[in-house]
Design a protein around this nucleic acid. Structure first.
Lengths: 268, 268
DNA sequence: CTGATGATTATGTATATACATTATATCCAT
DNA sequence: ATGGATATAATGTATATACATAATCATCAG
C-alpha cells in the first residue's frame, strides 16, 4: 500500500506520514482515514448530492479513490449502515436510505439534576409510602403475577418553593425485595433504585393531561391546568421493576429531544 | 471467567468451522463471532455482573477466551464504546462507564401513518398558505437572516371526522426555494419536505399547553383543553429549513419512547 | 419464450500482521 | 525522595488476505 502524501486521493489533506525532519508542524490532528471516508460520504448524503435511493460507489471503487484497503472503507460504510443512512444489498451495492421515521434521542436526567441545572434549589419530600398487594389495575400496568406485592410511593420534587414534579411510583417487591426496608423519606426512589437493580429496558409514554383536584392541590395549581405527564415502565429481563408517573405542572416544563435522521436500527 | 457450555471458548455454540462432510446440519444461523462477543459483554454489563467502573478483560484476554483474532474482539468492543457502555483508556484498559443520563429513542412517524395505524381514515386539509418576510419573532425561532422570506402554512390532519392534529409551519425559502411553487393543498408539507431536502439535525420540544380560543375552534375542543404540543426545528448544515408546531388535542394522544438499553443509569 | 444452471460480483466476516499513540510503570541519577 | 529518561502495555488504525454468502446476470436446454 502506498499513501502518496499529496495527490490522487480526493480532498486529501497534506501531511500523512511525514514525521521525518520537522516535528513542529503537527498539523492539528487530522482524523483517521475511515473517519474521513465516513464524513465524506455522510456529507454527500446530507447535502443531497447523493439523494435517497442513490447507489454509492462500491467498496472497491472507494478503495481506489482513497488508496486504502477494503477493510478501511468497510469500517466507514458499516458505521453509516448502523446510523441508518445507508442500506447494503449483496451483489447489488450500497444505497442511500429513504428516511422514514425520525428517531429522536430524548435525554432523561435525574430530577435533582434537572432542577439544579435551572439554578434553583432542589428539595425532595416523600408524601406517602405503603406496601400492599397488587390490584387488577396495577397488573394491567405492569404485567405482574396474581399475588404480587408492591411498594407504592408518592413524593414531590421542589424547585425552590414551587412544586416541580409529582412522582407516583410502584415498585415490584418480587424484583426488588430490599425496597420493603426503605422508607424513601430522604432518598428519592429513582436514585435508590439505580443503585439496587440493573435494568435492561424502559418505555416512556408522554402526554398532556388536565390536573385533577388532588394533583392540582399537591402541585399548587388550579384544577384543569395542563400538565405534562411522563409515564415510565422499567424492567430487567422480562421482570417489571417499577412504574412511575411524573406529572410536571403548567406549560413551563419542556422535554427536549435532539435528532439525527435515521430509519431503522440502533440509536447512536 | 468461564462460561463453558461445551468447551474452552465461552458460550460458544457448536459447529463453527465444520463444513467438511455433512452440510445438512446448518444449526439455525448462529450470529457472527463479533456479535456474540458484543452480546456477551453487553449482557454482563446490563446484568450488573460488571458494574460501572469495572475493568473488562483486555483485548488479548478476550482474544484468548474466544480463540479469535484481536480485530474481532476490537470490533465488538468498539461498538460498545459507540453505544456508550464502555470507555477505553490506553495502557490502562476498558471500563464500564458510569451512568450519566438515560437516553430514550423517540420514533416520530409521518402523521398519515400515525393515523392509519390507529385504523382510522386519514384526511389532510390545508387551511392557509402565504409567503411573507420573516418577522422578528420568526427570527428568534429559526435564526434567520434579516431579509429572509418564508412560506407559512396552517393545516389540519384528521382521523376520521375528528381533527387529529393542527400543523403550523414555517419554511425558509432560502433553504427550499421550490416551496414557493407548492400550494400544499393536496400534499402535507412534512412529507413534501422530506422528499425535497435532506436534513442533518432537528430539535424537538415537547410540552403541555391549554388550547387558546383559535386552536380550540380548529381542533373542535373546548378552550383550555390540555394539548400536547411538539415543536420541531429542522436544519441542514447550519441552515434552518423549517419550524413546525404540531398540536394534538386532548389527553388521548401519546408519544411513546422505547428505551434501547444504553447503560444502567439514572432516572428510574 | 421459459426455466434451470452456473458464473460473477459485492458484501460479510475473520485472520495475521504492523506500526502509531498514549498512559503507566520502572529505574537511575541527582 | 525527586525528577526525568526509558521501557512496557493496551488501545487505535490500517493492510493484505481469505473464504463465505447472497443476489444478479448470462447462458443454454427444452
Amino acid at each position: 500500500m502506498t499513501l502518496p502524501p499529496g495527490d490522487s486521493a480526493p480532498g486529501k489533506p497534506e501531511a500523512t506520514i511525514s514525521i521525518d525532519e520537522d516535528r513542529s508542524v503537527v498539523e492539528a490532528k487530522e482524523p483517521s482515514l475511515h473517519r474521513r471516508i465516513l464524513e465524506d460520504v455522510e456529507g454527500k448524503i446530507l447535502s443531497g448530492e447523493w439523494p435517497p435511493g442513490h447507489r454509492i460507489p462500491f467498496e472497491h471503487e472507494l478503495t481506489e479513490q482513497y488508496q486504502c484497503s477494503r477493510m478501511t472503507v468497510n469500517k466507514a460504510i458499516t458505521e453509516l449502515v448502523k446510523r441508518g443512512l445507508i442500506e447494503r444489498r449483496r451483489k447489488s451495492g450500497s444505497y442511500v436510505t429513504h428516511p422514514h421515521a425520525q428517531s429522536a434521542v430524548l435525554e432523561i436526567h435525574d430530577i435533582r439534576l434537572e432542577v439544579e441545572s435551572l439554578g434553583l434549589p432542589y428539595r425532595y419530600e416523600r408524601r406517602a409510602r405503603l406496601s400492599r398487594a397488587a390490584k387488577a389495575a396495577d397488573r394491567r400496568l405492569m404485567e405482574l403475577a396474581e399475588q404480587a406485592r408492591l411498594v407504592e410511593i408518592s413524593a414531590l420534587h421542589y424547585a425552590g418553593a414551587q412544586p416541580f414534579c409529582l412522582e407516583e411510583r410502584l415498585i415490584n417487591l418480587a424484583a426488588v425485595p430490599e425496597a420493603i426496608n426503605e422508607s424513601f423519606e430522604a432518598t428519592a426512589p429513582g436514585a435508590w433504585l439505580i443503585s439496587q437493580v440493573p435494568w435492561s429496558a424502559a418505555e416512556h409514554r408522554i402526554r398532556a393531561v388536565g390536573a385533577d383536584a388532588r394533583t392540582a392541590e399537591l402541585l399548587a395549581i388550579a384544577p384543569g391546568t395542563p400538565c405534562l405527564v411522563v409515564e415510565r415502565r422499567t424492567w430487567s429481563g422480562g421482570v417489571y421493576i417499577t412504574h412511575v408517573r411524573l406529572t410536571y405542572p403548567g406549560e413551563k416544563h419542556e422535554l427536549v429531544a435532539e435528532f439525527a435522521p435515521s430509519h431503522p436500527k440502533q440509536a447512536l
